[in-house]
Simulated assay, not measured.
Amino acid sequence: MHPQRDLPDEDLMLAYARGDASAFDLLYARHEAGLYRFVRRLLGASLAAQADEVFQDAWLRIVAARASFQPQGAAWRTWAFTIAHNAAMDRLRVAGREVSVDRDEDGDDPLDWLLARADQLAPSSEDLAYWRAAGAQLLHCLEALPQAQRAAFLLHHEDGASVEDLARRLSLPFETAKSRLRYALKKLRGCMGDYLAALEPAR
C-alpha cells in the first residue's frame, strides 16, 4: 500500500509542488471524472467538442499554479474547480456562445443529481427509460440557463459551494451570487416540473 493514497488533497498538492510527480498522479486520478463532468456541463452541448481541450487547459493551469496553492485558504477541490470554471468561462467568452438547447448525447450524466433529489440509489430496470428521459430533460434545462446561472448552479452542485463560496470565487456581491443560484434553481425546477412532481411521494 502506498501511504500517499491516504493523504488529503491539500497534502498531495504540496508534495507535488515540492517535485513529487506521483502525488499529482493521485490527485488526477481522484478528480479526473468530476472535473471533466463539471467542464463538460459548463460548456454545454454546442461546445462539447472542446471539452477535452478545456479540461486539459484546466489541468495545465493547476500545474502552472502549483506553487501558489495555499492549504490554509480554500480546499484543493474548491481551488481546482475555480480554475476549471475560469478556463471554461474563458472559452465561452472567446466563442461568443449563444444559449443553446441542443440535446446532449450523454443522457445518463445528470441522473446523479436527479436521483439524489428522489433519495434513490438507482432506477429499477423497468423505470430505466423514464429516468433516461428525465436525465435528457435535465440536460436540456441546464442548456437553457444563462451562462452565469448555470455556472452558479454547477459550482454549487458539483463542488458543494455555499453562497459565500460562490460570491468569493466569482467575485460577486453576496446578494448577487444568492440571486443567481436562486434563479437557476427556480428555472430548473420549473423546467423539470413534471419529473420532480412525480418524485414528491418518494421523499
Rank of each mutant, 00 (worst) to 15 (best):
S100E: 06
D20S: 13
A65R: 13
M1R: 08
Y183K: 14
E200R: 04
R77P: 11
V54P: 02
A75C: 03
L60W: 09
F69T: 02
L154G: 03
R180K: 13
L138D: 00
G44A: 02
D6V: 14
D159V: 15
L172N: 10
L27P: 05
S124L: 10
R189N: 13
I62T: 09
V94R: 03
A45E: 01
R180F: 12
L155C: 12
R66F: 09
K187T: 15
G73D: 04
D159K: 12
L166I: 07
L114Q: 10
A64Y: 15
W113S: 09
G96C: 02
M1A: 07
E200S: 10
D9T: 03
Y36W: 01
L115E: 08
R97S: 06
D194H: 06
A198R: 01
L170S: 04
A67C: 11
P71A: 14
S124A: 14
L145M: 04
D25Q: 06
A49L: 05
F69C: 08
G135Q: 12
S22G: 10
L114M: 14
R150V: 06
A48Q: 13
A148W: 05
R41A: 11
S179G: 14
A167Q: 13
A29C: 12
M89R: 05
P110S: 08
A134T: 05
K187V: 14
V101Y: 09
V63K: 08
S68H: 11
A133E: 07
E143L: 10
A29Q: 10
S100V: 12
Y130E: 11
F81R: 01
D102G: 08
Q137Y: 06
W79V: 02
D25M: 05
